[in-house]
Design a protein around this nucleic acid. Sequence first.
DNA 1: AATTAACATAGCATTATGCTATATTATTTG
DNA 2: CAAATAATATAGCATAATGCTATGTTAATT
Lengths: 315, 315
Amino acid sequence: MLIDPKHLHILSAIVDAGGMSQGARNLGKSQPSLSRIVADLEARLGESLFEKGRRPLQPTELCTRLASEGRVIARATQQAQDIASQFISGHAGSVRVAGTPIFMDGVISTIIAGFQDEFPELRVDQSYGYAEELIEALRAGTVDTCVCPMEPGDVPDDIGFQRILKGRNVIACGSAHPLARKKSLRLEEISEFPWITQPAGSPLYQDLRDVLDSIGISDFKVSYSGGTLSSIINVLAGSKALTVLPFSVVYMQPKNTIVALPIRIEHPKRELGMLWNDMESQSPAKRRFIRYMTKRFAGISQAVAERQRQEIWRE
Amino acid sequence: MLIDPKHLHILSAIVDAGGMSQGARNLGKSQPSLSRIVADLEARLGESLFEKGRRPLQPTELCTRLASEGRVIARATQQAQDIASQFISGHAGSVRVAGTPIFMDGVISTIIAGFQDEFPELRVDQSYGYAEELIEALRAGTVDTCVCPMEPGDVPDDIGFQRILKGRNVIACGSAHPLARKKSLRLEEISEFPWITQPAGSPLYQDLRDVLDSIGISDFKVSYSGGTLSSIINVLAGSKALTVLPFSVVYMQPKNTIVALPIRIEHPKRELGMLWNDMESQSPAKRRFIRYMTKRFAGISQAVAERQRQEIWRE
DNA sequence: AATTAACATAGCATTATGCTATATTATTTG
DNA sequence: CAAATAATATAGCATAATGCTATGTTAATT
């Protein structure tokens, strides 16, 4: 003797409408449908649900109590309906984003803020990692999308990649740094200052080495390492140390904290991009996030390049 | 795009069981059933509910949220199930009992106490009235059963009647009354005391008149009227007034409050009985109540008659 | 008594659901 | 890495549930 929750819902609709005909209209069904469902229920329960022979339909006590459970069911079903449509339209759900620390802290988090402003019901779970582990995480399904500097050729075939920003590094220092005011610099001038480095495995560490190699500095002094971006910026701002950072990160910082030195250094071969595993199986929220990011970066990319041209290349 | 609450319930069962096979076992269904229902739901939502190609079945975010609504539905359905079976077995529900005030207060309420002790989930709604209005209320369906002194011949054909107690009246007084200690009384002795009466329309008022008429007292002094039983008893106990009461009422009172005088007075033609409208359409709880009352009174009726024989008739 | 509005029933078409048998597939084991 | 295992997916078929329209009944109203 099992009761179908749908029947309880229908019962509540009849009781609330005050009759079968109106109840049927409210539910978008025909009156005979409800009539039969009620009759079946009565037969299966062995109890009548409406006083018979009364025309403003009068629910029995049992009916009233079952109808109140029906209301709970109706509410939960509606809720599920809403959740589903919110979810399908990409207005509800969550995205798990991972990426390299400096970019996540320095650029992506600000863009995420804009995303959350536009889609307040969407939850973003952020985590950190470098290329190999990120791809690993994508494959394991513990992360939905990653932001990571990659050489496009290094992206495995099974992983989607969308470039969002060109790789442009600069040498950065605190805005009070003695070199900060100079219009032009000779390479020798920077050699006396100590350096802030990223962890050895990180792309930026490699970039730093490459830059100094190309300038001819093979032996450099490291004054600070291991901090996340906010620590690095504090150290830069309060000391004479230098570091290599993506220009986009410098660009996104508030004025008067750090600046980029007007020295052209070589572009890293990596480009910042978004990675994903299987776009088709992504939920709408996740697709929406990726769409949003690539779209926002289309604009930002321009602005960053323009500013860099003005500030570093002085054209 | 309507979601069936049953499907949400099934979804929650699958998620909670950690897989379809176990979920199917828990629900008492076959695994292919669930598999298809999930596939249909996915097709209709256009979103997958379980990560595909993962074997410990892993619900997607959407699935998790829908399942949590499913749990609400499962709980409400179970609740409805419980309500129904409690109700059908007569262990839940309510009974609306009406009756004449003195009997309700003096006898029935005590029996109701026993009923509620045995069926604590059953609610009793009590109200008061006299024969015509009671029958009216039964027909209107505002009351389920009535307790009322009636002449069996006066019961309308459409109303069921079950005698529960013979009509036996006595003259009652406070236990400290000067007449209370006498073994036998002459009729003249009672004529000097004032009387407590019921409202003019009540059966007991008629009984009082009949009694005094038969004794030859046509002109009697009324000292108090209009009170319900507890007032009447207080007035009896604290004054020298007399009144006519059913012996059953006197019998049910605690010792040393009121007593019945050893004077044989004529039996009223009315007998206390239970009335109902249509036994078939009564809910189990109401049937159970009527059953309980008639059964309890089968015993009480004996005890009352026996005691009355001893106390009044002195046989 | 006639009218009206609602509920009940009948009949039929369609969909949903149930099952068993069997194919696939992810994971574990040897 | 192949075999074994255990779970899910699919196919096919029978049955139950549900939908509708048309129509019969009935309680309330005029």
